[in-house]
Structures are given as structure tokens and as C-alpha cells.
Design a protein around this nucleic acid. Structure first.
Lengths: 163, 163
DNA sequence: TCCGCTTCGTTGAAGGTTCAACCAAAGCCG
DNA sequence: CGGCTTTGGTTGAACCTTCAACGAAGCGGA
């Protein structure tokens, strides 16, 4: 493409509001969790996903997919969580490559103690400030963005309905 | 408060969509900028803010406020950018404590070359997928979140209209 | 069976962020 | 002036993420 289509004033307003809201919000969330549970938000999510799973266990690759993190990142994260005794890793029974991460009782206890404060914070900063309509809008917008990113960098103007 | 108010299904949907959209989006943006401009998004924003300022210069503290980063983070970031010759730091003329960061010509050139790709990416993943109405909604939602976070952890149910 | 290809998960190094500690300059107040 | 507090900014250590490289195990065709 020859020339760049810069953002209009309204588009900039939306983009910057989105950008800034995420920055201040996730900073605040991270600090809250760091203070109250001594772990970053990403680690908290690992525990949440494990707690929701059957047997409180998930294969590393599934856990990585659920938490939207790279395998490397998850590997490091679980290593840390294991050091603290909140998670254990065991071999997969039938697939020799697999590893299963399991939430321990200690991990579950930490999660239980941290969850209320976390939900309160999310409510205070986000949920309780928005109307039901706005929440619906936010869900729709978020899902649109996710879909577009997952579709990848393929050019939408490039009319290739088949490929 | 005695019991935690957990999120309803609709609230969860909105929250997770927001959460996931930011994760996949900023991962993609960071990768794009890392690839095309060899710097993370946070550093890019520093250059953007400097380029928009008078004389392409800002005091460190102002720059930190504009980019919503801690002083420490900005200090490290500018140190890196200075190593590459994209920014220089000079003493503040009247306030002996102050430092002024200035975008160099080389830094401006890098910014000019990286900006189109960045805007394209933002358009592709966000702007062009949303209607004008949705952009307006997103701006309003983002601004609400920002306002609530900046107000801090003060309890909204605590009726203290004066304080 | 053997060989190549892919998938799973880990590792170490490099880079970015956070946190607490710190220095220097400014401001304030006696 | 002299001491106290505040502000601006930097630093180093600890921690988290990313990236590329790797080893081990499954898969699949000749």
C-alpha cells in the first residue's frame, strides 16, 4: 500500500482509551495480587485454570493454551509454582512426552485466599462501573479483536475468500 | 464484607473477552514492533511521545506520566534508547534535578519507518473490525476504567461524597 | 525396521520490569 | 544560614518473559 491510513481523532480516542485502560488496570491488578498473594496475575491464572480442571490437573500444553501463554513461559511459571509447593508435575501415563501439572492442596488454599480480593478488585475497577449494556458491548468488542488477531496478519482487503 | 460477590456468567464473559483480547493483541503488537523496529511497544511509545512534544523534548517526569510508566522503568528505557542513539539526555537548565530527554534525528527516522507498520497492525486487529459506534463504546468504557483505577482502591459503596 | 518429521516440554541467555535503596537538588521553615 | 522534608531521577538485584536451541518421544512412510 502506498500511503498509510492514520487514525482519525475518534479512532485515536478509542485506541488510547483502550490502551491506557489496560495499562493502568493491569498494573493495579498485578500490584494487588503481588501484595495479597505474592504472585503476578499470570501465575494466578495458572492456578485458576488448574482449579477449574478435572482432578485439578492439566497437561502442560493444554494449560499453555488456556492461559494463552507460550510453552516456555508456562514451563518457567510452573517451575516457580512448584518450588513453592502450589503445583506438582507428574509424567503423562500414556504419552511419554507429556507432563501433567496438578494443583496441590496448598495451591488451592492460596487460591481460595486470594480469589476474593482479586474479584473485588476486578469489580471495583471494571464490572461495577459498567452497565449491563456496556458489558455486553465489551464482550462483543473483545471477541472481535480476539478473532481478528487469531486470524493473523492476513490482509482483510486481500480478497481471497477461499484461502 | 462477609461474602464475595462472584461474577455472573455475563460478567465473566465480558471480563474474559477483555482480558484475552488484550493478551493476544499486545502479544501481537509487541512481536510486530520487535520484528520491524527491534523494540518493545513500551519503548515505541516513548519515542512517539517525544516526537509529539515541543522541540521533541520532555522532562523525564513528564515523559513518565505521559507513558504511564514508573520513573524507574522510564529511566531504564531511556538508557537503552540512548545507547542506540535514538534519544539523548541533557540537564535541565534551571532545575538542577531535572533531566531532559530529546529525540534524535536517528530516533525520529526509526519512528517514521516503524509507524506505518504499527498503525496498519492496530487497524487490522482493532479499528477496522469495529463500527464507529463500537469505537465510541470502547472509548467510553476505557475512560470509565481509567477513572475508576485512578480513583484508587477507595470503596465505591462507602458513601463519602465529600472526601 | 529405519529414518525423517513433528510435537512436547525444558533450558539458558538476553532483555524488560519492579521494588527498594539511594543521591542530589529544591523547597520550606525556623 | 542550617536542618528537615520533598521531589527528580538513577541504580542494582530479583523476577518475569522471550527467543532460540535442544533432547526426548511419538508418528508415518518406504
Amino acid at each position: 500500500m502506498a500511503t498509510t491510513r492514520w487514525l482519525t481523532a475518534e479512532q485515536q480516542r478509542a485506541w488510547r482509551a483502550y490502551l491506557e485502560s489496560t495499562k493502568v488496570l493491569f498494573d493495579a491488578l498485578d500490584r494487588q495480587l503481588q501484595r495479597e498473594a505474592d504472585m503476578p496475575h499470570a501465575y494466578f491464572e495458572v492456578l485458576v485454570r488448574l482449579s477449574e480442571a478435572e482432578q485439578r490437573s492439566l497437561r502442560m500444553s493444554e494449560l499453555a493454551d488456556l492461559t494463552l501463554s507460550s510453552r516456555s513461559r508456562l514451563s518457567h511459571a510452573v517451575a516457580r509454582l512448584e518450588e513453592r509447593g502450589w503445583v506438582v508435575r507428574t509424567k503423562h501415563e500414556t504419552d511419554g512426552r507429556g507432563q501433567i501439572a496438578t494443583l496441590t492442596d496448598a495451591g488451592f488454599a492460596v487460591l481460595e485466599s486470594a480469589a476474593p480480593g482479586h474479584v473485588d478488585t476486578v469489580r471495583r475497577y471494571v464490572i461495577d462501573g459498567l452497565s449491563d449494556e456496556q458489558l455486553e458491548q465489551l464482550a462483543a468488542i473483545g471477541e472481535t479483536i480476539i478473532a481478528r488477531v487469531e486470524r493473523g496478519p492476513a490482509d482483510p482487503e486481500c480478497l481471497d475468500p477461499g484461502a
